[in-house]
């Protein structure tokens, strides 16, 4: 238990250990610690930024959605209008066309009726002549009675 040179040896080894710790142990670990602190702080800041950006993006997307809805409504209105226009136009066209067809048909009918009248008239005059021939028992000179025949024809 007496004091010996061990004390000096212990002091020396203490100094050596302290110096080694100061050189090789403390700085790397403190560096790692401060670096990690910085990393975490940066990460938190980034997260905060990301959060903020997300909020902005949400706002923007809501706006875009609203705009899109408005636009599509406009388009639908426009389409509706155009649809009504087309329908109206088609109706007009159809009416005009119908009238046109009716007019044409009427023309054709009139024409045919005229033709039938003419033909009938000719046939009737022929029949009348034949009848008169029968009655007179002689040839009727068409040329001599043309005036009469024409009168009859016009009367029919």
């Amino acid at each position: 238990m007496n004091i010996t040179v061990t004390l000096v040896a212990q002091s020396l080894s203490f100094f050596m250990l302290v110096v080694f710790t100061m050189k090789y142990v403390w700085p790397p670990i403190m560096n790692a610690l401060s670096e990690r602190t910085k990393k975490i702080a940066d990460g938190l800041a980034e997260a905060e930024k990301g959060h903020h950006e997300l909020e902005l993006a949400e706002k923007r997307s809501a706006e875009i959605l609203r705009e899109g809805k408005e636009k599509s409504k406009e388009f639908i209105d426009l389409g509706q209008k155009r649809h009504d226009e087309i329908v109206d136009e088609a109706k007009d066209n159809a009416r005009i066309e119908g009238e046109r067809i009716i007019t044409a048909a009427r023309g054709a009918i009139d024409q045919e009726r005229q033709q039938a009248k003419d033909a009938l008239r000719a046939e009737v005059s022929a029949l009348a002549i034949a009848g008169a021939e029968q009655i007179l028992m002689r040839e009727v000179d068409k040329n001599a009675h043309n005036e009469v025949l024409d009168k009859i024809s016009a009367g029919l």
């Binding site: 250990l17 790397p28 670990i29």
Partner: peptide, 19 residues
């Protein structure tokens, strides 16, 4: 024991990572 201390702490210090 001083060497034991130094060995483990130095080992940790050498491999120290901020990850």
């Amino acid at each position: 024991l001083g060497l034991v201390f130094f060995y483990f702490f130095h080992k940790a210090a050498r491999q120290a990572t901020s990850g």
